[in-house]
Every structure is written in structure tokens, then in C-alpha cells.
């Protein structure tokens, strides 16, 4: 089959292109290295770059709506993000390098669902929702139910992420931490804490296939919370040659402790 490339301009045009065979191309920072190595389906590529409706960051009620094609660079420097979800700005600024941030998108990270990816952990703690569309209609999924396993998400082959909606954390206290061993490589551990007047959540990514979640009350016991993280990591170990599971588990506990202390000490992020 000859290769094809399409760059639709509108959402309806995009949805007609998504026939279950198409490979979606967003920033390309994950998929292009794979395609360059001959990994993955490259027969029909559909680029999201030409669709204005997928761009932009805006307030939407008590939430901030990120178009799927909002780049890491845009998120790191957006005033709405800085005010309403500062930990996402922190997370964005730490990803990869300048060139990667100029291309990589929030939709691409969400769709790929990599263990420990900065946004995956942050969006889990933040209680984000993913807006997904296809020719069959559109639906909204809670982010913590969207990421199903290691690089496995609740996305059918004809579906596209249109936007990610994140509840504002203004009035609350939040913190984000990333731990990485080699600059340019994916982080080993990421941790995010969101403490709101009426709810609280800790998420730790990188030691398990999908982030560990601990719901936090208004008052919580640090030691018990860390034990819960540790236990969850022991139950679903994830590791690789550079960062084996027991090491990730130990770092998960450390970074959970840091992020909770930072959030409690009212440091801005």
C-alpha cells in the first residue's frame, strides 16, 4: 500500500480520516523516532497540526481546557496555567529539552500513557478529564480511568483526544516533583500532590505501570500515606535495566514524601 499523509483543517474532516487504519501524528516526539526505526504503522498518517480547534488553552468554568495540540512550551509559559494549575506548568517546563517542548503535546502524552510521564502523574493527581471524539460521537473520561496500563489507554483506533480538562487548583496547595537520572531521558519518578479544601490526592508515577493514587483527607498522616505508596508499588512492580523496580519503589516513597511536604509547607509549586 502506498503511504499517505493527510492534514485535515477541521475536526469533522479529521474524524472522517480516522477510519481505524490511520496513525495519528501530533508532535511526533514519541512516534517519529519509532517510525524512523520502522516500528509501528506508517501506511496512513493523519497529522493534527493543521486543526486550529485542537489548539489553545482557555478557562472553561472552574477548569482549564487544554486543546490536545497545546505544546509543552505553550503550557510552560501560559499565564492561565500559571494561575490555575501551576504544577502543570512546572511539569511542562521539565520535559525533555527546548526542541522537544516546542513540538510535544499534552494530547500525545495522554494518548501514549507512558509510566512516569510528567503529565500522566500530574493529570492523575489533578483529577483531569479527557475529551475523546470519533465518527461515532464524543465522550469524556476521567484521566485516572483513561490510562489502563503501561502505555495502554482507553482509546479506540478511530478515536482522537480533542482536549484535556483540568479543574483549577486555585485556593488549594499543590506540588510537583520529578526525579531523573540522565538529562534527556524519561523521568524515573514523578510525584504530584493536590490539597484542596474539600479533597486531596497524591499521585506517584514511574514505580508502577500506571500512577499510584492515594486519596487524602483534610488531615492526613504522612507515615501512613507513604506506607500506602510503598504497598501499592510492591503490588504492581515496574522497572527496567537502568532503574529496576526495587529502586523505583524506594524513590517513589522518597519523592512522595517530598511532594507532600512541599504541598503542606504552602510552597507555590
Amino acid at each position: 500500500m502506498p503511504a499517505s499523509f493527510a492534514a485535515p483543517r477541521t475536526l469533522p474532516e479529521l474524524l472522517t480520516e480516522l477510519d481505524g487504519e490511520a496513525t495519528i501524528l501530533a508532535g511526533g516526539m514519541t512516534i517519529m523516532p519509532l517510525l524512523n526505526r520502522g516500528i509501528g504503522r506508517a501506511g496512513k498518517i493523519v497529522s493534527l497540526s493543521g486543526i486550529p480547534a485542537l489548539r489553545g488553552i482557555a478557562r472553561s468554568g472552574d477548569s482549564v481546557r487544554f486543546g490536545a495540540m497545546a505544546t509543552h512550551s505553550e503550557i510552560a509559559s501560559d499565564p492561565i496555567v500559571a494561575e490555575h494549575v501551576p504544577i502543570l506548568a512546572t511539569a511542562a517546563a521539565g520535559i525533555g529539552d527546548v526542541q522537544v517542548r516546542n513540538r510535544g503535546t499534552i494530547g500525545g502524552v495522554a494518548a501514549y500513557g507512558n509510566a512516569g510521564a510528567d503529565y500522566v502523574t500530574a493529570l492523575t493527581a489533578l483529577g483531569a478529564r479527557v475529551v475523546v471524539a470519533s465518527r461515532r460521537g464524543s465522550r469524556e473520561v476521567a484521566f485516572d480511568r483513561f490510562v489502563l496500563g503501561l502505555r495502554r489507554t482507553d482509546l479506540a483506533r478511530d478515536e482522537v483526544i480533542v482536549a484535556v480538562e483540568v479543574p483549577s487548583t486555585s485556593g488549594g496547595r499543590t506540588a510537583f516533583e520529578r526525579y531523573f537520572r540522565v538529562q534527556g531521558a524519561a523521568p524515573t519518578i514523578t510525584a504530584a500532590a493536590v490539597l484542596m479544601p474539600d479533597r486531596g490526592r497524591l499521585a506517584v508515577g514511574g514505580a508502577t505501570p500506571t500512577p499510584v493514587i492515594v486519596e487524602l483527607g483534610r488531615e492526613f498522616d504522612l507515615a501512613a500515606t507513604l506506607d500506602a505508596v510503598d504497598e501499592a508499588c510492591a503490588g504492581r512492580p515496574f522497572g527496567d535495566a537502568h532503574n529496576p523496580a526495587p529502586y523505583r519503589r524506594a524513590m517513589a516513597r522518597n519523592f512522595a514524601a517530598r511532594v507532600l511536604r512541599h504541598a503542606r509547607e504552602e510552597q507555590p509549586c
Binding site: 492534514a7 501524528l25 511526533g28 516526539m29 517519529m32 527546548v98 526542541q99
Partner: peptide
């Protein structure tokens, strides 16, 4: 392979010419 695309630096090995 760094180039500038619409004023932003990009790694052009991971960008399709069509884009």
C-alpha cells in the same frame, strides 16, 4: 538536525516534510 520552524527550534529528523 535542529532547524527553526515558524520561529521555534525543532528537531527536523522527527518532523515530516509534509508538515
Amino acid at each position: 538536525c535542529t532547524l527553526s520552524l515558524d520561529g521555534l527550534t525543532v528537531k527536523s529528523c522527527c518532523l515530516l516534510a509534509a508538515e
